[in-house]
């Protein structure tokens, strides 16, 4: 099997023949997917807010959509970082804001209520994914209680004891 990465190997260095399971779990991959989704949506909201507000019957709310776009971008960047828990949590908070904003636009005078309903359904779906990913990341990457249970009080590193180790330097100074 050919691996693209092998073209960067110096001559004579080991090349990949067959790849094994990744340290990236399904949870990590889901978080990564949501991070990129956040960045994509954020860019759309920043670049084309008018198209969104027109489709949702929310004309005049472009500044708010842009602000939400900036929020999505920030959450996406954090979700793609090692601090994915913080990014995902901020996404859930953002989802709540999105839902509240869409609910407010569901009024009878909005001619695009159907579109808003569709958007609301999508946001609720993504919110469920965000919540699931947040919980899964917390379980997968959080410190478990048994980490605290491990105690290393007997691991001095000094076979002859700490006090003997302290005397080593004194003996050396006196010897010198």
């Amino acid at each position: 099997m050919n691996f693209l990465s092998n073209i960067t190997r110096s001559e004579g260095d080991p090349r990949i023949l067959r790849t094994g399971p990744s340290s990236l779990s399904m949870t990590d991959k889901l978080a990564r997917g949501l991070g990129w989704f956040s960045i994509g949506l954020g860019l759309v909201e920043l670049v084309a807010p008018r198209k969104l507000t027109r489709a949702l019957g929310m004309e005049g709310m472009e500044p708010l959509v842009r602000a939400y776009g900036a929020r999505e971008l920030a959450a996406g960047v954090v979700t793609l970082s090692p601090d994915k828990q913080v990014g995902l949590t901020s996404r859930v908070v953002g989802d709540a804001l999105d839902i509240a904003t869409l609910l407010a636009a569901m009024g009878p005078r909005n001619r695009r209520r159907d579109n808003v309903g569709l958007a609301l359904a999508m946001v609720v779906g993504v919110t469920m994914l965000d919540i699931a990913a947040t919980k899964a990341v917390a379980v997968r990457h959080g410190r478990k209680s048994n980490g605290d249970a491990r105690r290393y009080a007997d691991r001095t590193g000094f076979p002859q004891g700490v006090e003997a180790a302290r005397r080593v330097a004194t003996a050396q100074r006196q010897g010198a």
Partner: peptide, 11 residues
Amino acid sequence: EDIRCDSVSDP
């Protein structure tokens, strides 16, 4: 965050 135990050619 993507480390894998791969089969590679010998050095």
